[in-house]
Nucleic acid binder design. Structure first.
Lengths: 230, 230
DNA sequence: AATCCGCCGCTTGTATACAATATTTCTTGC
DNA sequence: GCAAGAAATATTGTATACAAGCGGCGGATT
């Protein structure tokens, strides 16, 4: 698959190494628990160890990579329990966005949200789960923007990066897409009516449901492989 | 081997540079907006630029430091607006802890909380705001632990680091200490009664009040100096 | 005299060389 | 044959040397 055997202009368009390695983790090219060998990465990217190390430290600070003092860096292996915790936090942060959005949304904002929702509906009808994934993301992001808390928006982005690799799996089921759309409608209605508490609750449970379904999925996956005892 | 020429016995016991520089920022030795010169820091700590750079990158990823591509690293200057946003997120995260704690607290947990609260009361009576600061922190941390969400606990720690430099200023007023103590009592009562929603609300408003008071303080400070127009 | 262009120094970014430590394997003794 | 220790190896952490941009300063030109 990877034809870049040795340093042949591998990363000509890569802005920085950090994103490149991050992509490998997010796309699954680097599995959780995998060791990140500095010299191998350096060779692959055609650079020296120094920038690789910088990237690894940054990723460690972001939480995608775990570093052990003299042992090296590993892709963090997020267990089901920790994943549940992360989703719980995500639900709360998104709920806060929704609450703020319900208070602050202007007519133009509501218009934008309606459009995002309509895009979700179209994507849902198309049946393509990937399309719905992105439309769904746009809907959520619009709410985050309307919420008006830039720091919160940024933190959600960070957290989402850590969940992204897993999250992509969760909306494959058609039934879930339909339910998701209905939940979006409820959120939208609450925001439109300026009911902040209702909007927050709707959003929280929306994400929480994803959490539950997702935890089940992960548990199943873990059970199936059952060959990763560290 | 340590031959720092201008050495003030700098970092003999410092575990790593990152914490050392972080301390300088948190204690105010390095003011917001200050430039972090790599060679100066390297000389001060008696190491080469390499570990300094690592530390700076880590701090940048944590959010305490801002890096501009070829310009260097600066202590991030958090404006009042951003600060408000950060406190809002903090309030929500702490509220989540309290909600979980109300659900999950055992008798032993409640006992621990009572003790922390009592320590706060003693500190409040002593009138020493620093003592109260630490007792208050212990109380909050106990709730975070009881909440049972390790990831949440960790994220709050991260966020708190970014607020710590400012937060230390906020409990100086005697009246605020008394009010804080009463709010703690309300939180404790709700957790003890297992009323999760009430506990969350009490905690949220507790932190939100700090936010308001604090924002006022910062605004005053900014107004007073009024010599840092970016 | 003011402005624009080019040079010089300073700082960051990268590479390579070296030192220190963890892991692994081989040898030796029981 | 197995275990324990020691050496060898491999990998991380650090230092120094070098390359590349950005900023400031001065001179020349209009």
């Amino acid at each position: 698959m990877r034809k870049d055997t040795k340093g042949d202009m591998v990363t000509t368009d890569t802005p920085n190494l950090r994103d490149a390695i991050e992509d490998r983790i997010l796309t699954g090219a680097l599995r959780p628990g995998a060791r990140l060998d500095e010299v191998s990465l350096a060779q692959e990217f055609g650079v020296s160890r120094t920038p690789i190390r910088q990237a690894l430290f940054q990723l460690a600070a972001t939480g995608l990579v775990e570093q052990f003092p003299r042992r090296g860096a590993f892709v963090v292996d997020t267990g089901p329990a920790r994943l549940r915790e992360m989703f719980e936090v995500m639900a709360e942060l998104e709920a806060l966005c929704a609450r703020n959005a319900a208070r602050r949304a202007s007519q133009a904002d509501l218009q934008t949200l309606e459009e995002c929702h309509e895009a979700c509906r179209i994507a849902a009808d198309s049946g393509d789960s990937d399309t719905y994934y992105y439309a769904n993301e746009a809907f959520h992001d619009a709410i985050r923007v309307i919420g008006g808390n830039g720091f919160l928006h940024q933190e959600i982005g960070r957290l989402q990066k850590r969940l992204q690799a897993f999250r992509r799996l969760q909306l494959r089921a058609r039934a879930r897409i339909g339910a998701s759309l209905r939940e979006h409608a409820a959120i939208l209605a609450a925001i439109g009516a300026g009911q902040s508490a209702e909007a927050a609750d709707a959003m929280r449970s929306h994400v929480a449901i994803q959490n539950e379904q997702f935890t089940d999925l992960i548990a199943t996956l873990q059970r199936n492989k059952s060959s990763s005892a560290a």
